[in-house]
Amino acid sequence: MIEFHNVTKIYSSNGTKALDNVTLSIAKGEFVFIVGASGAGKSTFLKLIMHEESPTKGSIIVNDMHLEKLKRRKVPYLRRTMGIVFQDFRLISKMTVYENVAFAMRCIGKKNATIKKRVPYILELVGLKDKANDHPSELSGGEQQRVALARALVNNPSLIIADEPTGNVDPEMSFEIMQLLSEINKRGTTVLVVTHEHNLVENFSKRCIKIDDGRVISDTGVAPEMVAI
């Protein structure tokens, strides 16, 4: 699913080495936590996966696409295979919950009929069916993040990337969101979660990759339940 071979990322604007010779691979269907201090390079790792940034050295393969060979105009098609969730939700405030989720489908040219069927189904999945006509400002942080998650899921991606999805959500809600991600993972979607919250990582006992100063300093490897499969 995701393979990094000796990947180094140096930001040319200020010469910061954000990732330093990283080699790792994440299999299809895995659930992976990425942890590390602020500035360790976690977001950079995610940006490289979605080709928001290109590596300075090394090669990256995502969903069988060799990113160094990927043409600029093909990047949107790479992104359609993944759903992204940000810490700050990134919902459009003047759109309703329904419209926010439908927006992701419109953006890739889906038909109205398809949208009308798919959006309610996904809203039900994240438990927000009765909030469909609310605006994001009327929702709690946890609910907003579930809308963002619904938007990331609606195009049926094979990979979900979440950069500190619980950073702006209170602890109880954080647990719910993580449970939702775990649920989604059980249905076959690969999930990558960057987080600061150690208790969550401990609670869910999944594979955990720790990054420090651009290097992978520990990797628990594939979680026991995955090995069982």
Partner: peptide
């Protein structure tokens, strides 16, 4: 710019 940014993150093409 915010909407455009979201569009690009969910895989909208530039022509769209």
């Amino acid at each position: 710019r915010f909407e455009i940014s979201i569009m690009k993150s969910v895989g909208a093409t530039n022509s769209f």
